[in-house]
Design a protein around this nucleic acid. Structure first.
Length: 387
DNA sequence: TATCTAACGTAATCAGTGC
DNA sequence: GCACTGATTACGTTAGATA
């Protein structure tokens, strides 16, 4: 499935490497996702991370799946009265991901990259993730927000010209900066054109931990090891248990991927014991919820935080858990989200900033603007003209 | 080749943080 | 209170995988 990794075939103008490699969910994984979706189409960060761990995929993929699934469902039941948004009273509501604090030095790197390329492909994003220590999904969001709010950041930016579909179907896409706030007159997006980047990273993770094997690898454990390298590189070694012969791409025994390539959940420094599905959660509250709790109809209301069964048998799948606890989904209380987030992004809180001193030190110390620039120039994904 | 669906884009909005 | 900005949503589109 190296499909995306190289544009060797069908060399359209679209850089194949610009997109993340498509994840192929297994039936069992879909089943679990579906089951959870039935319970709550708007899972919070805690649930998503938990699900991600259980399925062995990145949390961001879980999030995307739910987005797509909601859309599919909405399309199916497109009756005027069956609007999901109305059902949910507009409020997806469980705990959000905790705000990620991006340090000035990290911002500098991102801005640099942004000025050069407003639409970095997966490889470029991962490279940025590696440079900054920020998870790739967060970088993707950062770029989205940045594009929306700083339309003309890259005056000369090749990224601005991004929209040029294969057939010249130029994407109406990136509207002129000035038009940014204009009504989206049937905006059509265009494929992310990007430099052909050969790198791909997430797949090994996904492929490595099929659902049947709830034993997802854990950084720092015997089954899965994350070893730090200069800039937070980890060596991922899929748990033997998690490998299935049926898996298509036999993942290399060890794959070095950027930190961000590990899903936050995967890379989070939590240390579940053998058998723990969720890490112990620290009681902490701060999540503000909308008054109307947006749980899908028929869904049990959010429950009080309940101590997560840390000793859930490994054989217990999330699905089982779901079925067993019908309606008891979001067992993670606010605290769960927080804890999860704390694991997710140690830097997400200023208070936790100290924890990233290591990173900060690296980022702050030796690299000056020109150095960053030079680095960026050296990136394989470093944008040339996108067209 | 058609269909399904993961990935990714924008726009709008919510929400945390710092002043 | 406000500005800034990260997170999440709906929605539209693209493109890879598969029947």
């Amino acid at each position: 499935m190296a499909s995306s990794s190289s544009s060797s075939t069908s060399g359209g103008p679209i850089a194949r490497g610009s997109r993340r490699r498509r994840l192929v969910l297994k039936l069992s994984q879909k089943d679990t996702l579906q089951a959870l979706f039935q319970q709550n189409p708007y899972p919070g960060i805690a649930t998503r991370e938990r699900l991600a761990r259980e399925l062995g995929i990145a949390e961001s993929r879980v999030q995307v799946w739910f987005q797509n699934q909601r859309r599919r469902r909405l399309k199916q039941s497109r009756s005027p009265s069956a609007n999901m948004r109305q059902d949910g009273e507009g409020a997806p509501g469980e705990a959000r991901r905790k705000r990620t604090a991006i340090s000035p030095s990290q911002t500098r790197i991102l801005v640099q990259a942004f000025t050069r390329d407003r639409f970095p492909g997966i490889a470029a994003r991962e490279e940025l993730a590696r440079q900054t220590g920020i998870p790739e999904p967060r970088i993707q969001i950062w770029f989205q927000n940045r594009r929306a709010r700083h339309p003309q950041q890259s005056a000369r930016g090749p990224g601005n010209v991004r929209a040029r579909g294969p057939g010249g179907a130029s994407a109406t896409t990136a509207p002129a900066p000035e038009d940014r706030r204009a009504p989206p007159a049937v905006h059509s997006t265009s494929p992310p054109l990007g430099p052909s980047q050969t790198q791909e990273s997430m797949p090994p993770l996904a492929a490595a931990a099929p659902l049947g094997a709830p034993t997802f690898w854990v950084p720092g454990t015997a089954s899965g090891v994350c070893v730090g390298q200069p800039l937070m590189f980890f060596v991922i070694q899929p748990s033997p248990m998690s490998l299935q012969p049926s898996e298509k791409p036999p993942p290399p025994p060890q794959v070095a991927v950027p930190w961000a390539a590990c899903s936050p959940a995967d890379t989070a420094p939590w240390q579940p014991g053998p058998g723990a599905i969720l890490p112990p959660l620290q009681p902490e509250t701060h999540i503000r919820r909308r008054p109307e709790s947006p749980v899908a109809e028929g869904t049990a209301p959010l429950l009080e935080p309940q101590p997560h069964p840390p000793s859930l048998p490994r054989s217990t799948s999330l699905l089982d858990e779901l079925l067993a606890a019908t309606g008891i989904l979001e067992t993670q209380a606010p605290s769960a989200g927080d804890a999860a987030d704390a694991r997710d992004t140690p830097w997400s809180s200023p208070r936790a900033a100290a924890d990233e001193e290591g990173v900060e030190a690296i980022l702050e110390a030796p690299l000056r603007e020109e150095d960053y620039q030079a680095l960026l120039d050296m990136l394989p994904g470093s944008p040339g003209p996108r067209a």
